[in-house]
Design a protein around this nucleic acid. Structure first.
Lengths: 218, 218
DNA sequence: CCGGCGATCATCCAAATGGTTGATTCCCGC
DNA sequence: GCGGGAATCAACCATTTGGATGATCGCCGG
């Protein structure tokens, strides 16, 4: 059986070097190309396919300093824009906020690992994802489990989106413009968010959402 | 002349592997130890010194998932807690926010590089820092310049205190009670805070203050 | 095919927040 | 001792937010 052919996507040369070194120690895995962002990744994907050297797995960061972000790139890859058939996408990133995980999974990612994971965990994830299985970091899996077991009122995708804008300090009007909806709708969403989070104003909502890692607090 | 002896400090195994691989390509540089956080770094430093194998340079991330953060670790290293004489500390991190840079420089860091820097830039920085010189990433240098030209007004202690309560989601009335002052005073403070931070509402103030690390957002 | 939920919008009203002006006290530094 | 900044408070007014009610539309699952 031939090696798993991996495409690395990360905007940090240091991280790419680390993954390259790490994957070199895994038997059965070969890094065939690298890219610094989503745009470059799509280019690499189709380039490799036209060469008859398809990629078996994309290992990608979510946050990219410049160019297309990981979620968008994942969507495009899964839509077949990088050449068919689309390879599994394994997300390897720094943060484990609900919003990030949800977005990645919805975009079609096959796995979600954290960069502080030990090499062995990363190895397992790479092999699983390449084999078409789902690979979630224990922390991530636990979070999703807790979310299912706990009837903690789940925020809808739109509500999380609102929360994220909220945390940047935008007013209702600004959010309405940004999302192309009316202020009335923004207010409706906010009321729902407040009741689900058990708070009664926007700042408290941000505090709780940040604490529960629903959104990122950096 | 013997090699520059480097201690790597980063909570991500992937990043450590990347730096290790990268530094291995630099002639005259040897990685003698690694640590996942500030506490471990201090232990390593004194351990190596008692072994008569002192460290010439500490290459450290600012954000560490667990344990002592980079700024605190830098302070302690410079205070001689890792064994004397304290080695130069080169910060290699992801973010270039004003507060981060300031804090690192004030803590005594000899340099501040970004992880998305090309290997060559990192190599230069390592050599400079080990030679006792200051090494700043171009982006960072530019930012510091802009900061000196355009200094932002400092918040008073009371104002920071207000901000902290604000970030927990408290209303003006609640903060007034908590601080034993009137709502009017709370509002006055808030207005001052807004103008100093260049915002016009409380959520934006929290966003800016969190980003600048005036308050902690986690 | 029907019920429920998410997303959208409207209206009305009460409460909180934001902005302004002006004033007092205290303390620090020149 | 005087100027200035920090901290305190008041009164007023405009704007924003919060809360309640009700409604439409589209989609998904039983």
């Amino acid at each position: 059986m031939s090696d798993i052919r991996v495409l690395l996507v990360d905007d940090h040369p240091v991280v790419r070097a680390g993954l390259r070194a790490m994957l070199a120690d895994f038997p059965g895995v070969t890094v065939v190309a690298e890219a610094a962002n989503g745009d470059a990744a799509l280019v690499e994907l189709s380039r490799l396919q036209t060469l008859g050297e398809p990629v078996d797995l994309v290992l990608m960061d979510l946050q990219m300093g410049s160019g297309m972000d990981g979620v968008t790139a994942t969507e495009k890859i899964k839509a077949g824009e990088g050449g068919n058939p689309p390879p599994p996408v394994l997300i390897l990133t720094t943060y484990d906020t609900d919003a990030d995980i949800l977005a990645a999974v919805e975009a079609g990612a096959s796995g979600y690992m954290l960069k502080d994971a030990p090499p062995d965990q990363i190895r397992q994830a790479v092999l699983s994802a390449a084999a078409g299985q789902t690979a979630l970091a224990p922390e991530v899996a636990a979070r999703l489990m807790g979310r299912i077991r706990n009837p903690s009122p789940a925020l809808s995708g739109r509500e999380v989106q609102l929360l994220e804008l909220l945390a940047t300090g935008m007013s209702n009007r600004a959010m309405a413009k940004q999302l192309f909806i009316s202020e009335a709708t923004v207010k409706t969403h906010l009321v729902h968010i407040y009741s689900k989070l058990g708070v009664d104003n926007r700042t408290a909502a941000i505090a709780v959402a940040t604490q529960r890692r629903i959104i990122r607090g950096h």
